[in-house]
Design a protein around this nucleic acid. Structure first.
Lengths: 168, 168
DNA sequence: CACTTTATGTCAGCCTTGTTGACATTCCAA
DNA sequence: TTGGAATGTCAACAAGGCTGACATAAAGTG
């Protein structure tokens, strides 16, 4: 274990000296913050009889109208069986519509229905509100740093998906 | 949906104008980053036949040697039955030791054994390494912002637990 | 055209990890 | 002495991961 005293910076290069304690703080920050991050949607989902898996599907279908099942699979990183179970209920409940592809008829393109979009709004309003408050509390510079660290923490494949969304 | 053009700041107060798109980016950053955050420990845990629930228990027992079951419950936010199932296997496997309290004999104080500490080290080494790289990539100012936003995102109870750990 | 590959869906079964409810034990504290 | 707190345990259930196997339709390829 480190003793918490960073050594003096050598040479001309500015390095980050990070004690195990500082890193542990970051790890716990991720853990506790993620709980807060999911708390509001979880409550809403429970009222509707859905879980986080449904939220994830709804979110990314909303983000990319008409996305295919395969694309969703690579974003979510679950098996098709897991995703299919969730999609099946969302389609049966009339929140998601699945249309056979025009060019490639093997593909199914996924869309939120009116009801699906309404739930999406309810969920993302709550989550955005939490995010907005956190941003305001921390300030604009903190927000930039927050995004930078998170992006650096992603696996490359996920970073690709993250950046692939319509920008800004 | 917002068009991404923030309105001019009114009056003398500096506000943060956050479009829905910017907030959505933050939300997805949390989602994708958390996946990266857990990826390395998940691999290690799988090799040992454990899951994330075991990791969480091991982490917080390590952080607070001799903590009680009740304290752990309030940190983890699960039912005692869930936690107990995990603790039982960890104790049976000789990674955690449970000692009856001296003052209050109802309480059990939890400690990592040598083997438990070894697994904790393996897990946290991997997770710290990911965190260290992200920090170095993003830079010191980003790290500060990262921590500020995450702390602001926590539920108050969790923020209390977060801050309660030995500081620095 | 025959064959292979791709995209998707589905069934069955298993595991982890969460839940609720019920009940027992121990023991502190009023 | 009695109520309630702290803990453990049993049973049952659900969500949501997983693997494996199999089916179908459509696209691509030689």
């Amino acid at each position: 274990m480190s003793d918490g005293t960073p050594p003096a910076a050598p040479g001309g290069e500015t390095l980050l000296f990070l004690t195990d304690e500082q890193l542990r703080k970051g790890i716990e920050a991720m853990f506790f913050a993620y709980r807060g991050f999911t708390a509001d949607p979880d409550r809403i989902l429970a009222e509707h009889g859905y879980g986080r898996a449904h939220h994830r599907a709804i979110h990314f279908i909303h983000r990319s109208h008409g996305t295919t099942v395969n694309n969703l699979l690579s974003i979510l990183g679950v098996t098709k069986q897991s995703l299919n179970r969730v999609l099946r209920t969302l389609i049966a409940d009339g929140l998601v519509e699945s249309r056979v592809g025009t060019r490639d008829k093997r593909e199914r393109h996924l869309f939120l229905t009116e009801a699906g979009a309404a739930l999406e709004r309810e969920l993302s309003d709550a989550q955005r509100e939490r995010m907005r408050l956190a941003y305001r509390t921390a300030g604009p510079e903190a927000v930039s740093g927050f995004r930078q660290v998170l992006e650096a923490m992603m696996d490359p494949d996920m970073r690709r998906h993250y950046r692939a969304a319509r920008e800004k």
